[in-house]
Design a protein around this nucleic acid. Structure first.
Lengths: 336, 336
DNA sequence: CTGAAAGCGCTAACAG
DNA sequence: CTGTTAGCGCTTTCAG
């Protein structure tokens, strides 16, 4: 498929064995540091390997094992989103300790692309899958799970199948944020949300509705905006909200991108509504923005941990891990 | 190595062939959409494959090819740093169009870990390597390059070997930034820099020195701080600088993390020095921070492109691609 | 158009 | 301690 410079092919274990004057299997043992090799032999093999620039071939090794490779697939909507890149970082770190490598790909919030990426990873025989799904339909994963492939959903849990998942306490986080705003006298609170089809968004919106209703606010729906999947759209939505009469006195944004958009829209305006954002972000402290914070790395780590448990044979029912959220007050929730 | 649920093993092409009543090779042809298969036969094979839930085994396929896998390795100092995650994103996107998958890992700025990660990727027979190196010594890569492994250095170029690289115009960027500050009357300009051993840092510091010297400023070294590899350390350095007598009237920070640290240190202080940062960042617009901007995704894309060219047989000498930088004025460079 | 045979590089299972 | 044999799942010859 892909050709290296012709003629210069990589040395094989057989060549190492020949040079060291031992059998293939002995060379194999020596190279892998197995027991039952005399020190002298091991020495000679090591020397031969070094001289030839030998590298074990993980492809051949994995094929032989008859098992999957030591790769774990990670599918994420956008690797460049700080939240997800931190999730990836956490997963990577934990998997490394188990000698597993991470192969990641961005689905760009496209269910079809997600499907393709999963297929590619399955062909590569990843030993497990970590996935931030953008799809509504996960039936195609069932045969794989039945074949023993550990699949762990991160951040967004599937609605149509039961599966291992690591998710945030979205309800609790939004609840506390809204309470916080209500306590400060806000009644006209707007919610600027992400794609309505996403589980996280649904949970956050539901918690918002519940908290507002419980507080006796009836016209909350008027200040509800959804499907703002990037900062630009969020900024536009905020602009529209502020043009309402009467305008909202507070904004709740349901993720980091939306918060960014809101901050842009608010920039330079005389009337600055209060603001609480879901997801902490770089410089939120400098900007004094109150947020619902959590630990993205932890999500990745716990996802990896669940995978390791499954690979280790854990056979119980699907486990859903809920990560706590925390309200960090930085002043932007006060009434003006 | 890693066991799936016992008993439920994945179907092989042989089983598909048996079910379809054709030979192994015919099944192979059909599954790969090759020519010279009668439509009827192709149909039957497809059906059998579907029924069994067959997935091609890329491990076996890559082994057979005798070539490297269709994986490309990416080693980066920290995948969670927005700059690098965007580089990764760009590389991923471009490689996808060539049916290559990205396998990435963070070296945590540790040369030894970097070395280990490279070894692991070589064992996995990546077809090429993209690397943001933290090491000073790259001799160990020479045998690999000689074996035909394309290696492209991103962001930081090696000093000890000549190799393909995609780097920023660090000198030009810093030069323009310093000129910008000088034009606004600043003379006591501080430079807060990253690890002095990094090529990028050296280039940026050199350009700073050159611009200051050319402007006739002689005591610039007094306001020079290096080895601030995280926001915390940068914040501390800025605190120290501002305590000098006389303090600098302007700050130049040499990367996004340092700029973040500087903004934290400056928060709430009455005397706010001017500030220009290297690297653009989210919310720089909201905070009104003037920066030396560039396109991280483009760096990843171009790195991928160079790899594809090499894999395609391009055999010329090492190519160094220089990415332009641009000064984006947002007001923070004015004298107060 | 279709198939049989060989082998990629390695390791597990058995002998010595 | 060391070596031989077989085979992972697939594709590449080379014949039908």
């Amino acid at each position: 498929m892909v050709a290296g410079r012709p003629g210069a092919s990589r040395p094989t274990l057989r060549q190492v064995a020949a040079l060291a004057g031992v059998s293939l299997k002995t060379a194999s043992r020596a190279v892998n540091g197995e027991a039952y090799v005399s020190p002298g032999t091991a020495q000679r093999v090591q020397a031969a390997a070094e001289q030839l620039g030998f590298r074990r071939n993980a492809i051949a090794r994995d094929l032989r094992a008859g098992a999957r490779s030591s790769l774990v697939g990670l599918i994420i909507s956008d690797l460049a989103n700080p939240f997800y890149s931190r999730v990836a970082r956490g997963a990577e770190r934990r998997l490394r300790t188990a000698n597993l490598q991470l192969i990641s790909a961005s689905s760009e919030e496209d269910p079809e692309l997600e499907h393709t990426l999963v297929a590619e990873m399955l062909e590569r025989r990843v030993s497990a899958l970590l996935i931030v799904t953008s799809a509504a339909d996960h039936a195609y994963l069932e045969p794989e799970r039945r074949l023993g492939l550990p699949v762990v959903f991160l951040d967004r849990e599937p609605a149509d199948i039961v599966a291992d998942a690591v998710v945030l306490d979205n309800g609790g986080g939004v609840h506390r944020a809204v309470e916080h705003l209500l306590e400060r006298g806000h009644r006209r609170i707007a919610l600027v949300g992400d794609l309505a089809r996403l589980a996280t968004q649904q949970q956050r919106a539901a918690a918002f509705e519940a908290a507002m209703t419980a507080a006796g606010v009836t016209d909350w729906a008027r200040y509800l905006r959804a499907d703002c999947h990037d900062a630009g759209r969020a900024a536009r939505a905020v602009g529209e909200l502020l043009a309402l009469d009467p305008p909202p006195t507070a904004l709740m944004t349901t993720n980091n991108l939306i918060t960014t958009g809101a901050l842009r829209a608010l920039r330079g305006r005389p009337e600055r509504p209060a603001l609480v954002g879901f997801d902490d972000f770089d410089l939120a402290d400098v900007l004094g923005v109150t947020v619902v914070a959590h630990e993205p790395e932890r999500m990745g780590e716990l996802g990896a941990e669940q995978i390791l448990a499954r690979l280790g044979g854990a056979d119980g029912p699907a486990r859903r891990v809920l990560l706590p959220t925390e309200l960090i007050e930085r002043g932007s929730a006060e009434a003006r």
